[in-house]
């Protein structure tokens, strides 16, 4: 297992390199002047300052050299200063990451917790009302824009009926991470962030469960007189989980994009909202840093996913 993890980590290097290269090229290929991007909102900048910054940014050097220098800077954790807040971009980003992770992890648990039972039910009650209901939910859940669901949630459950707060992490005056107040604030964003995932999982699981159920060894288990629940729990689920773990990749990718929307709708002070606000005020170093950090997190999540995959499916180890 150790070797598997090590190999997977090494494989991530070219991917990360690709992310950095792409981010770099985007800023250099665009028609916007990078110096201007760096100086947005600064009123008293002389031509001299501009020339100086041009030189400091190394814009007078060939592209590959610029890229290498930029990488060197990043390696020293220097992501530049936020134009808007005059603080290191990396600090701003890192202080938001835990908030986003809390939201994502909870939504993830929620998806697995609700999605797997739904998938099993759909398979076991194949062709009956439960199956059809779950299918309809799946298809509709895919088709509704997330921000739309979020806005409706806020309007109905927070503004018209005061069941939930309109957003943010805590009531003013409370400051806690593991408490009822936080849980109360998490309901809306977690629910909306999970919908697409919950719509996704049962469909995959249903097919797999159906396929596994028809396999010989399940029939054998059943004929041995094991109860239906035991058969499902032990044999079917274990095997059907493999593709489910694979689908976590999609769910993860979806999360990072969904967050941007959900955090704005629910005023959640996470990475997504920071990035959005930075983008609105053209705070380029922050947006660039956020992309790099979000991608790194995503690559790490993929690695964890693959480790889980190797753990669920022993065949991987053999390879």
């Amino acid at each position: 297992m150790g070797r598997f993890i090590a190999r997977r980590l090494v494989q991530a290097i070219p991917t990360l390199f690709g992310v950095l290269l792409l981010t770099f090229l985007l800023s250099r290929l665009s028609p916007s002047d990078p110096v201007k991007l760096m100086l947005y909102g600064n009123t008293e900048v002389t031509q001299e300052d501009r020339a100086q910054l041009y030189h400091a940014l190394g814009l007078d050097k060939p592209l590959p050299v610029q890229f290498a220098e930029w990488l060197w800077q990043l390696a020293h954790l220097d992501f530049g200063n936020s134009i808007y807040y005059h603080r290191p971009a990396l600090d701003l980003i890192l202080e938001r990451v835990p908030n986003s992770l809390q939201l994502s992890l909870l939504a993830f648990v929620f998806i697995v917790g609700v999605g797997i039972p739904l998938g099993v039910i759909a398979a076991l009650r194949r062709g009956r009302i439960e199956d059809h209901g779950i299918r309809v939910f799946s298809v509709v859940g895919h088709a509704v824009p997330e921000f739309w669901l979020g806005l409706i949630f806020v309007l109905t459950f927070a503004v018209q009926n005061r069941w939930f707060p309109i957003g943010s992490m805590n009531v003013v005056g409370t400051d806690c991470t593991l408490c009822w107040d936080r849980a109360w604030h998490l309901v809306g964003p977690v629910l909306v962030l999970s919908i697409a995932g919950i719509a996704n999982l049962p469909r995959i699981l249903r097919t797999e469960v159906l396929e596994v159920i028809s396999q010989d060894y399940v029939r054998t288990a059943r004929s041995k007189g094991l109860s239906e629940q035991a058969v499902v729990a032990v044999h079917v689920l274990r095997n059907a989980l493999i593709p489910v773990v694979t689908s976590f990749g999609t769910i993860l990718l979806l999360f990072f994009s969904g967050q941007l929307i959900i955090e704005r709708v629910f005023n959640w002070p996470g990475l997504g909202r920071l990035t959005f606000e930075a983008a609105v005020s053209k705070d380029y170093p922050v947006v660039q840093g956020a992309i790099i950090i979000a991608s790194t997190l995503l690559i790490l999540s993929y690695i964890i996913r693959d480790i889980a995959y190797a753990w669920v499916d022993p065949r991987i180890k053999v390879k």
Binding site: A158, V159, P165, I166, G167, R264, N267, R273
Partner: peptide, 13 residues
Amino acid sequence: YADATAIKNALVT
């Protein structure tokens, strides 16, 4: 808050 609409909602609630 995210925008003026969110502040309005917060005022209402």
